[in-house]
Design a protein around this nucleic acid. Structure first.
Length: 463
DNA sequence: GGAACTCGCCAC
DNA sequence: AAACGTGGCGAGTTCC
């Protein structure tokens, strides 16, 4: 019988061929609009100066300056800010940093309800966009192109990383930051950007390891786990996108329960996050009329009538949900995690289905997460190598220009578009599972196509 | 003056 | 009993 599992040699070849394919993407690079960057950098500087000027006139700032004697305040110093608000003004930190000081991240500052702190947050965001992103592009560009590096040898899980500039953390979720940063990035003249992502890749690859029948069913039949969990957690009869508040709660459940649970989090954090961050219920005891909108009223109305009117009750509720999630919904996944951890403790290493071996000291969550994260990326890398090979063989004018863990970004020649999309779909969803037969779940990809000569911030269409 | 550290924050 | 995985990078700060 043919051994369908890649070995260490296969793993080595993947890295070798991956390095060569990524090199071509690095050499190609991505076009940047230097005029836009210069213009926008100046605008951001102006806006930052303005906000700082206003801030400096406030009582808040003058008191801060006074408290430091003749040492000048640096508005950008988290240490100075933390000392002032927690040691001088006497606010109680809502959370502490790893080293035990009062945190001054956005969440902590907003919790204090001080308007001056809100402008400090605004200044922070603008500096981030200006210095980290636009500044990074400007610093790294050569003749109007950035050439981000992609590395295959830094990450414990055998994922990739990227730097100079980092291609893998350009803002996307925050629409304002997305627009400011991605407006600097373009395809070659006459071309268009195309982004192809695997859908729920890590969840699918995890299923290849644990083979939980209920999870396989969700994946193969395309059922919506997040919707089911939303019904269970919020005691909703029938989840419905179209009903006020439902979609928001689904996001809350997806990002506040399901994914964190997969990474090894627990109900305590989940309950605090879902109620506080996602539902806007910041107190311990909830009263009707509070929090995000839900079915024409507020989420707290709904929770109170379902005997979930406090953080304590909601936490107890999520404790039961967590038990049910692992013991009844995904028992085989649960059993696999236990076996996998026991295997690491016995042998001192773990082997991935892609042929890689991870050794070294690991916590339980590490040992369980590494193989999933790693082999999910290897699926992407395999596809990247194969598409790069075909690109060279068929002499495409289209280029692969980058990769973000489960996505590939192309700079496409419009007259090749149809063929390129067809080839991408075939390689990513058909050729890969044929080459790696341990993949026994369907793979899905979705494409985003940007206009000809449009920036990465332009409106895209699904392909 | 640079190395190493902390913190915050961007991505998946 | 405790409790979230992987990175890069800018800025401030401390140490040598």
């Amino acid at each position: 019988m043919r051994n369908i599992h890649p070995n260490t040699n296969d793993a080595y070849r993947l890295l070798h061929n991956g390095a060569l394919a990524l090199l071509r993407a690095e050499q190609q690079g991505m076009r940047v609009d230097m005029e836009y960057i210069e213009r926008t950098t100046a605008q951001l500087t102006e806006q930052i100066d303005e906000l700082e000027a206003v801030l400096k006139k406030t009582k808040f700032f003058r008191h801060w300056q006074h408290s430091r004697g003749n040492r000048a305040v640096n508005i950008n110093s988290d240490v100075q800010l933390g000392n002032y608000i927690y040691n001088r003004l006497g606010f109680e930190p809502v959370k502490l940093t790893d080293s035990g000081r009062g945190a001054v991240d956005e969440e902590s500052l907003l919790a204090l309800g001080v308007p001056e702190l809100e402008s400090i947050i605004k200044i922070r965001k603008m500096r981030k966009n200006r210095d980290t992103y636009l500044g990074g592009f400007a610093r790294e560009q050569v003749d109007g192109y950035v050439h981000p590096f992609f590395h295959l040898h830094f990450v414990r899980t055998y994922r990739s990383s990227s730097d100079r500039p980092n291609f893998q953390n350009i803002p996307k979720r925050d629409k304002e930051a997305q627009k400011i940063t991605r407006q600097a990035l373009y395809p070659r003249p006459g071309h268009q950007l195309l982004e192809f992502d695997y859908g729920a890749l890590e969840v699918r690859i995890a299923a290849c390891y644990h083979q939980d029948p209920n999870m396989l069913k969700y994946i193969r039949e395309g059922h919506d786990l997040h919707a089911d969990m939303t019904e269970q957690i919020f005691k909703i009869d029938k989840y419905d996108d179209a009903i006020d508040g439902h979609a928001h709660l689904r996001s809350a459940v997806k990002n506040g329960f399901v994914f964190p649970q997969f990474y090894g989090d627990y109900y305590g954090n989940n309950a605090a996050d879902i109620s506080g961050k996602w539902c806007g219920l910041k107190t311990k005891q909830w009263k009707p009329g509070q929090g995000v909108g839900f079915e024409g009223a507020h989420i707290s109305d709904h929770l109170c009538t379902h005997k979930l009117g406090s953080l304590q009750k909601f936490t107890d509720h999520l404790k039961e949900i967590e038990e049910d999630f692992w013991e009844n919904r995904f028992p085989e996944y649960h059993a696999w995690k236990r076996r996998w951890w026991a295997g690491y403790k016995k042998f001192g290493y773990i082997d991935m289905k892609t042929g890689f071996r991870c050794s070294g000291l690991m916590e339980r969550n590490d040992a369980i997460n590494y193989p999933i994260q790693g082999s999910a990326f290897h699926c992407l890398l395999w596809s990247f190598i194969e598409l790069d090979r075909i690109m060279v063989l068929e002499k495409w004018n289209t280029r692969l220009i980058g990769q973000i863990h489960d996505a590939i970004i192309f700079d496409v020649s419009p007259n090749e578009l149809d063929h390129v999309i067809k080839t991408i779909r075939r390689v990513t969803t058909q050729d890969l599972p044929k080459a790696w037969q341990w993949i026994n779940v369907p793979l899905e990809v979705k494409g985003d196509l940007f206009p000809v000569d449009g920036s990465w911030a332009s409106e895209s269409t699904k392909v």
